[in-house]
Amino acid sequence: MKRHSHADQPAPRTSAGLWLTGLAATGILITLAGSFVIAVGTIARRVVTPARTRIRESDVHSVDTENGTITLGTNPDTTLPGRYGLFFGEPEHYLRLGPVIGPIGTTVTRRLETPVSGIPSRGPATFSGWYFSRPEELGLEYSAVDVQTPVGPAPAWLFPAETDSGRWVIIAHGRGTTRSECLRAVPVWRDAGYTTLLVSYRNDGEAPPSADGLYGLGDTEWNDVDAAIDEAVSRGATDIVLMGWSMGGTIVVQTALRSAQADLIRGIVLESPVLDWGRVLEFQADATRIPVPLRMAAIAAISNPWGRALTGLDTAVNFTGLDVVSRADDLATPVLILHSDDDGFVPSSGSHELAVARPDLVTFVPFTVARHTKLWNYDEDRWTSAIQDWARALA
């Protein structure tokens, strides 16, 4: 029989050894938990923090000013039919782009509609749906006014109707952009007899910031549109339509649902609207492959008081209150929705569902191919006709 020496026996685990092992395991768990919390905070803050620089997701390959063309790298936006814009160069220029000319391969060549000189021949750029970047480009009478909001005076552009009828439209832009986004809508509303007010709101880079400097995703910004209603009424408005692009859609719907002046609101027009932040954030998390536990925790942090330490928000965002689809029964005014099934940023499912839930109030004009907030650019005639027909029926 083989004898076992003491060296063959496992060493007994002392209480000190067990304590050190437990301490190491606890340290690992704390480190993992800390990393998770940091990741959650990073994702949550990204949602509510206003962008101060443009994402350069396009590339200019060449500029031919003599022949009036510009060649870009291809992506789902740069190859679209229609008229668009491009932020390019240092100092930054805004260039108007016309239709695609020539074949599409790894690059696409478009008509360059802006006379420019002194810009680089290549480099990173930002493709835009604005087309118009300044109010004077419309060739219409306008004035700069200030709307007295709860956070201070917010600049706005006022385009008077040709004949004053008391009908006004107040238009709110989307997340990460400015009121220039809304200039495309001015001509159709002026032709319909409306005075148009293009507003800014807290934390958009033009209006004063809120105390926390962060987006409320519509949960706070609606107060600034409500203040714009006060401004319109003081100037003779008697019937008001609210219009919003993307997050601006959330903002104007919340204004209609919460304003003490809701009886003045005759209708709502929504372009590529965010109607349910939950599904939008899920869609974007899928696109960027953010794990489900992280995305769920980030949404919880934004929407609960305990998450304020992670997000920096003064007040948690009420996602339930912002879910217009689930609150469809609360709508009381006619709504026109323009949304593309190929939006690529805000899924159109909420628009479809709201139209089904309230066929008595909601007119839904679906698009395809067009990308987020670029419906006017892709098919200006159809976009314009949809608003004209709806406005005529409303009147």
Rank of each mutant, 00 (worst) to 15 (best):
K2P: 01
K2C: 00
H4K: 06
H4R: 07
A11E: 15
R13H: 13
S15E: 12
G22K: 12
A24W: 10
A25K: 15
A33N: 14
S35N: 07
V37F: 08
I38A: 15
I38W: 15
I38N: 14
A39T: 08
I43H: 06
A44W: 11
V48F: 09
P50Q: 09
R52L: 13
S58N: 05
V60C: 00
V60Q: 00
S62L: 08
T65G: 00
T71L: 02
G73H: 10
N75D: 05
P76L: 06
T79M: 02
G85V: 06
P91S: 08
P91K: 09
E92T: 12
L95I: 03
G98N: 00
R110C: 02
L112H: 02
L112M: 04
L112Q: 05
T114E: 00
S117D: 03
P120F: 10
R122P: 00
P135D: 10
P135Q: 07
P135S: 08
E136F: 14
E137W: 12
G139V: 10
L140N: 06
L140G: 07
E141L: 15
D146W: 10
Q148V: 14
V151T: 15
S165A: 05
R167Y: 01
W168A: 04
T178F: 09
R179D: 02
S180G: 09
A192F: 00
Y194D: 01
L197I: 10
L198S: 09
D204T: 14
G205S: 13
G205K: 11
P208E: 08
P209L: 07
L214M: 08
G216H: 05
L217T: 02
N223R: 13
A228G: 12
A232Q: 11
V233W: 13
V233C: 05
D239R: 10
I240L: 06
Q254G: 01
R258M: 11
R258G: 03
A260R: 14
L264A: 03
L264H: 05
I268T: 09
W277N: 01
D286E: 13
T288K: 09
A300V: 07
A301Y: 02
I302V: 04
V317N: 04
F319P: 00
G321R: 11
V325Q: 14
D329A: 15
D330P: 12
P334F: 05
L336D: 06
L336Q: 02
H339T: 14
D341F: 06
D342M: 03
P347T: 15
S348L: 10
H352V: 11
H352W: 10
V356N: 06
A357T: 10
D360C: 09
T373N: 11
N377R: 04
D381F: 07
D381Q: 11
A386E: 04
D389N: 04
R392D: 09
L394Q: 02
